[in-house]
Amino acid sequence: MSAMKGWIDIGAVVDIPMLGARVVKSAVGCIAIFRTEADEVFAIDDKCPHKAGPLSQGIVHGRAVTCPLHNWVISLESGAAQGADSGQVRTYRLKVEKGRILLDGATLAASHAA
């Protein structure tokens, strides 16, 4: 598991359309990587807390995404459902270096253990 401990290069920021998302497949399930209008990148589980809708397919606005199945709004920062709905998805640590997105292998591993 050593390679999973460090930072894992999953691709370039520009591979994600602005206000869009891409999916990374992992052993813990699909992770959705979002790019906001301000060019920030976030990683959260691609699984809506409501009925497991694929959040990567939703509409991105501000630092949130609207789920494509029943329109829950999920915060990209905290993974929490906004407004009247309650629910939580996992968020993943990442950093951006020279335009590349590096996912924290440790958070992946931690979720393994969980």
Binding site: A3, G11, G20, R22, V23, V24, K25, A27
Partner: peptide, 17 residues
């Protein structure tokens, strides 16, 4: 094209471990 393919597949990476 980006809409239809995953960005990365870490399952293979993990399998290789």
């Amino acid at each position: 094209a980006h809409e239809f393919a995953p960005m990365a597949d870490l399952t293979r990476l993990e399998a290789a471990e």
